[in-house]
Amino acid sequence: MSPTGTVLRTVHDVAGLSAVADHFSDVWRTPRTAPPYPAEVLHSLVHAGGAVHAVYRERRLAGAAVAVLGPDRSTYSLVAAAERGLGPALKRAQRDWARTLGARTMRWTFDPLVGRNARFNLVKLGAVGTEYLIDFYGPMADGVNDGDESDRLTVTWDLTGTGTPYDVRPEGAVLRTAPDGGPLARRAGRSLWCRIPADAVALRAADPALALRWRHAVREVFLDAFAEGFRATGMSRDGWYTLARTEEAA
């Protein structure tokens, strides 16, 4: 169910896809003449069997998401961006579309330093961080990511269940120190916690060098943890990831 006063639909027409491209330009602070996802690309993805979902608030475009088919009953969400409170409706629409095609999972990536996105993906949706990608896109020239390395965390969302979101506070011994002098990582038994900056986007704009030190510090924790069989399962409100070790890695 969409929030009151909103309408959610799939977009197929050129005008609607152009509006979605403009929306993505505004979110990523690029000129509308150079959108991160041009309308013609979106049109090709739809023609190839993908889906563009858009949510409208009082007839105004307020969010959009793009998904494509993947192998072995999987789907991939290329991009999603919506105004506050509308993200869950968009993801449910993507889930419903994918399930009608017989898909069992959906994957996408996000910047692991952006805590609000981590909470949405891991806590609200119950997705699991399954892969850490170093500088995935290479240098990015948009107004949000410019000047940073584009590390991304892949999450996998089980479309057949309700998910198992975790939101556990950190405990255990401090393993590493963060660039601000506070604890970066803690570990207790089969659980590990990693802290990220309170607002990575603002930090990147104010002090790019410090933001990059955070990037490298968090990267090191995640790479070591994933090599041991840990997966990201939660994010606390004060910026701590929970990473749990899978049974297969016992």
Results as ranks from 00 to 15, higher is better:
residue 194 C to G: 01
residue 35 P to R: 01
residue 46 V to A: 05
residue 227 A to P: 08
residue 208 P to H: 03
residue 156 T to H: 09
residue 42 L to K: 08
residue 59 R to Q: 06
residue 84 R to W: 13
residue 101 L to S: 03
residue 6 T to D: 05
residue 186 R to C: 14
residue 46 V to F: 12
residue 49 G to K: 03
residue 16 G to Q: 11
residue 237 R to Y: 10
residue 13 D to T: 09
residue 93 A to R: 12
residue 152 R to Q: 15
residue 243 L to M: 02
residue 130 T to K: 10
residue 91 K to M: 09
residue 215 R to T: 00
residue 165 P to D: 11
residue 79 V to I: 10
residue 244 A to L: 13
residue 104 R to T: 09
residue 125 L to P: 14
residue 164 T to M: 15
residue 63 G to A: 05
residue 128 V to W: 05
residue 66 V to A: 15
residue 191 S to D: 07
residue 2 S to A: 15
residue 246 T to E: 14
residue 8 L to E: 09
residue 236 S to D: 14
residue 250 A to G: 15
residue 231 R to A: 08
residue 193 W to I: 00
residue 69 L to M: 11
residue 198 A to V: 06
residue 191 S to W: 09
residue 211 A to S: 14
residue 206 A to N: 05
residue 87 G to L: 01
residue 28 W to L: 14
residue 165 P to L: 10
residue 25 S to R: 08
residue 6 T to M: 11
residue 130 T to V: 04
residue 27 V to P: 00
residue 54 A to I: 05
residue 156 T to E: 13
residue 108 W to L: 00
residue 50 G to W: 06
residue 9 R to P: 03
residue 139 P to V: 07
residue 31 P to H: 03
residue 142 D to G: 08
residue 76 Y to L: 12
residue 210 L to H: 02
residue 147 G to F: 12
residue 42 L to D: 03
residue 36 P to G: 10
residue 135 D to I: 04
residue 118 A to E: 06
residue 67 A to E: 09
residue 213 R to V: 02
residue 100 T to W: 02
residue 232 A to W: 10
residue 177 T to E: 03
residue 119 R to F: 07
residue 53 H to D: 02
residue 120 F to M: 15
residue 145 N to D: 07
residue 27 V to K: 00
residue 4 T to C: 02
residue 199 D to C: 06
